[in-house]
């Protein structure tokens, strides 16, 4: 059983600047921020390393961080753009009984995170869901399609983004009440 501090040290020694920081000061679960372009390698290490043995991915969630940057153009009208999306990986080790949360932050403009489907099969559907709901694209995912919403749903519309607007119609059916 290892604390999140120890896990952070191990990861930092192994991956260096791919591991950004350990966030411990807010309740309840501390998390480790990593870069989105190396999640697969980190996941493989967390899974295989005999000190860590994270054999189960409890949940993978896509989150819109809702931190757009306010910009003013020449005429003075304000517009919001940019911001980040995050993927949270909640990991648990059944043999060693310890937990850790990993967070990968990516740009909202072109959200791209490496898939961990090859490490934990649980990630397959969870990544599809994160793509469906928040619009994060997962590199090397075998079948990244919509899972909950219909396949012909508007391609650029992701319901759990904070700036989402409910559509009016779907296939001729009125959606608002």
């Amino acid at each position: 059983m290892k604390s999140s501090k120890e896990i952070f040290e191990i990861l930092k020694a192994e991956f260096g600047d791919k591991i950004l920081e350990l966030k411990e000061d807010i309740p309840v679960d501390p998390y480790i921020i990593v870069t989105p372009d190396s999640t697969e390698k980190i996941a493989r290490f967390l899974h295989d390393s005999s000190d860590l043995q994270f054999d189960s991915l409890m949940v993978l969630s896509g989150v819109d961080d809702n931190n757009p940057v306010k910009t003013k153009d020449e005429e003075g009208t304000e517009s919001l753009s940019g911001g980040t999306l995050s993927v949270y990986y909640h990991l648990y080790s059944i043999p060693l009984n310890h937990k850790i949360v990993i967070r990968a932050v990516t740009e909202k403009e072109n959200p791209m995170v490496q898939s961990v489907e090859s490490v934990w099969k649980t990630a397959d559907w969870h990544e599809r869901e994160a793509f469906d709901m928040v619009g994060i694209r997962f590199e090397n995912h075998p079948d990244l399609t919509r899972i909950l919403l219909p396949y012909d749903w508007d391609e650029s519309s992701f319901p759990l983004r904070k700036d989402y607007k409910n559509p009016e119609f779907y296939q001729g059916m009125k959606i608002p009440y």
């Binding site: 909950l148 919403l149 319901p159 989402y164 409910n166 559509p167 059916m173 009125k174 959606i175 608002p176 009440y177």
Partner: peptide
């Protein structure tokens, strides 16, 4: 209200 994927009544 917030059901973006729910049909508001089957009679539609």
């Amino acid at each position: 209200e917030h059901g973006y994927h729910v049909l508001k009544g089957v009679d539609r």
